[in-house]
Structure formats: C-alpha cells, structure tokens
Amino acid sequence: MLEYGWDAGVAISRFLDGLKAGKILGVRCNVCGRTVTPPRAFCELDFKPIDAWVELPDTGTINTYSICYITWDMKPLRKPQIPAVIEIDGTTPRAGFLHLIGGVKGSSVESIRKQLRVGMPVRAVWRKPDQREGAITDILHFEPVRGRRR
C-alpha cells in the first residue's frame, strides 16, 4: 500500500506549533477585513498574502453540531461522536472549524440535546502540555461553558 507524507504547509505548521503551546492562532486580511481560522498563507478571496497573525482565545460558540451513531463503514457506535463547527471568539462571524464536543453526559439524542444548543459558548479542553504533539488533537474537544451567557 502507498503511504503519504503530507506537508502541513507554511500556515498550518504555525497553527500546529500554536496548538502545542496551548494557543489557537488565526489570520487577518486587511482587504476583506476577515479574521479566520484555520490559518492560511494567503487570502483566497483577495488573493494576496495575509496581513497579520492573531492569537485567539480558546473559547467560541457552537455554530452547529451533530450526534453521530455510525462509523464510516456503517458500524454502530454506542457512545456517539459529537462533531461540531466551532466559531472561535475573535473571528469573523460564520468562520468556524470542525472539532468535537465532549463533557456531555448520556448517549441518547434526547439527553445530549438537553445539554447542547446552537449558539452555546464552549471552551477548548486541552491535552496536558507534555502530551501535546502539535496536532489538531492537542485539543481533546470543546465543552460547554456553564454559567456564561451571551
């Protein structure tokens, strides 16, 4: 079988270094005015290099989530995965990225939906610093921030 040795590239390498240090990094383009993450080396709309790197907080909002009970080969999962698009605080609205939600009790749709809603604030739950490897999984998942309303 073939295997691939992908390069993360200029922008994602720096993003991964940030994750290893417990930081979520984004980039800004001064022409369209967007601040986005995951970072990219150039603005795909204005087709020019990005203007600035910004350190973002590790909090955000649930843009959408799902409760997934199957694997890619359609095997059932007793404990569902909860993928979500998270809009990181400080980014332009509707600029989120894919991650997972954790810290939620139960495994039924009903019990999980009682604990989560679109628009809910969340915070990253990190691996311990000595276990981080500069990967997206250095964030274990995002979990609801209780007692904070916006």
């Binding site: 994602i12 993003f15 995951p38 959408t64 989530y65 799902s66 409760i67 997934c68 199957i70 694997t71 890619w72 995965q81 993928p83 979500a84 698009v85 990225f97 894919l98 991650h99 997972l100 990967a135 997206i136 999984t137």
Partner: peptide, 15 residues
C-alpha cells in the same frame, strides 16, 4: 486538521 478527528461523510451533512 480534519482527518485526525475521525470524520465521516455523514458529519458534514448532519452539521
């Protein structure tokens, strides 16, 4: 930044 999370195609549609 996505595959290590274990995604499948249904994720994006359900999201």
């Amino acid at each position: 930044i996505e595959r290590p999370l274990g995604p499948n195609l249904l994720w994006i549609f359900s999201l």
